[in-house]
Design a protein around this nucleic acid. Sequence first.
DNA 1: AATTGTATGACTGATATTGATTGTTTTTGA
DNA 2: TCAAAAACAATCAATATCAGTCATACAATT
Lengths: 270, 270
Amino acid sequence: MMPEERRQKIIEILYANKSATVKNLCDQLMASEATIRRDLTVLEDEEKLERVHGGAIIQSNVPIEKEDTYNEKEGVYLYEKKQIAKVAFSYLRENDSIFLDGGTTTIELAKLIGRSRIKINVFTNAPHFTQFIAGNPKAEQFILGGRIRNNTLAVVGQLAIDTIRRFRLNKVFIGVNAISLEYGLTTPDFEEAEMKRAILEKGRERYILADASKFNKVALCEILPISAVDTIITSSLEEDEIKEKFKLEGVLLVEATKKEAGMYDYDGDA
Amino acid sequence: MMPEERRQKIIEILYANKSATVKNLCDQLMASEATIRRDLTVLEDEEKLERVHGGAIIQSNVPIEKEDTYNEKEGVYLYEKKQIAKVAFSYLRENDSIFLDGGTTTIELAKLIGRSRIKINVFTNAPHFTQFIAGNPKAEQFILGGRIRNNTLAVVGQLAIDTIRRFRLNKVFIGVNAISLEYGLTTPDFEEAEMKRAILEKGRERYILADASKFNKVALCEILPISAVDTIITSSLEEDEIKEKFKLEGVLLVEATKKEAGMYDYDGDA
DNA sequence: AATTGTATGACTGATATTGATTGTTTTTGA
DNA sequence: TCAAAAACAATCAATATCAGTCATACAATT
């Protein structure tokens, strides 16, 4: 078994049981204690679990605020996300009806909308976005109802999917965890995948917001193939080769650090 | 069982039963008294419980974080709201299904739930509450869908009212702007009044959270008469006369700064 | 073929956890 | 108030778990 594969299984076991001992994991994964301990160390560094004496426990307690301040320390990714959000904002027009999917990139777009005075209807499945968007008195907000996943704070479930089908959306903006030419758009959680698919199917213009780190990755749950979206907004990619391949799929790849025709600039408090 | 796992279970047992003896915990967790005592010492250092001779009780006086700066304009009322929220929290039990109405008092209750580990289902029409409640991994959250009023950030409208009717709620907690014996509960916005009425009609136990400044006031839109609620939790009122009149209407008036039977004390030095 | 890098498991001294035992403190009830 | 009972803290030895080191295995690269 490959190391990554084994670590993925550790996470799965932890999500199922909330905790696991080292011995336990050894038996299930046919690995030595040393290997399991090394895996746990790696996964703890990635903040995917919490080590305790004897094993590990899952800490599904990941408030968005914490994540935000974490990224703020990281710096570089937050900057990229802000750049991507600016480009996405430049695609908005007065009287658009848009959908904003939950995520750390789309939240930057929500903040931009909240600081602007654009007249717009915003649907979202991310309850915590509303306080940012509310800063713009000309924005009308709608939230999907349903159960909330505590770690991403996104609404998921059948009620939400049923509701989204009742609206006509002009533009939809979705964040994903992984983009691959072969496997399309994928994300780790099944219910979120269902939700994102339903949203994409309702949008007339479909935008994916994803920084460069998301490319050529695959997560557990399939959303849709690449061809199901119109535009991917990302931070700058090194390889031109990748861009060409996306063009062949009928997808426009926009890089945040370069200007494209048809965009107008948005500059914070202008 | 791993130490951390066992300590989490201790917290769970305490939330379910409000208190536990050392012997009791020994039996449930198959550990010696020495081990349990050590666990209790650790958990007390982490301020997750309070040790007493013979065992431990829950002590939900959670560390106050920076959030005060956000609400600083509220000033003296914020203290009253926190006190009211603490009393409201003391009415919660494991596996309750509650509704939390949007408002500046109920948000303090949301924060308490988020910092606790009580197992509870929370329905709300206030999207911005979700990030607080998400701090508690054992809380399941549901949000009503619909249009959001930008000034209160509460979901209103027919879709939300239709949705709330599909659920059975154990306890509902509502904030109001004005309470009057003659005119009942009133609030300035028509749609919010509709919403609050729908919620109150669904609740088995109905609690109103209102500080003393809300009494003997009338706002534009009628919600329901006083008799439609079971308990009003408020800060201390000067006049005993008022309390008597509420009692005649079949409403229990609880003052946050005084102790009442049936409440468990969760702030030792209050 | 030699080298580099990574992954793995075995080993070892260090650290943490546990239950028993002891003597001390607190509670209880006459 | 006093004495018995209960609960407690401190200590110790046995056990479990941990982190670090080393040698081996294997694949990719030189």
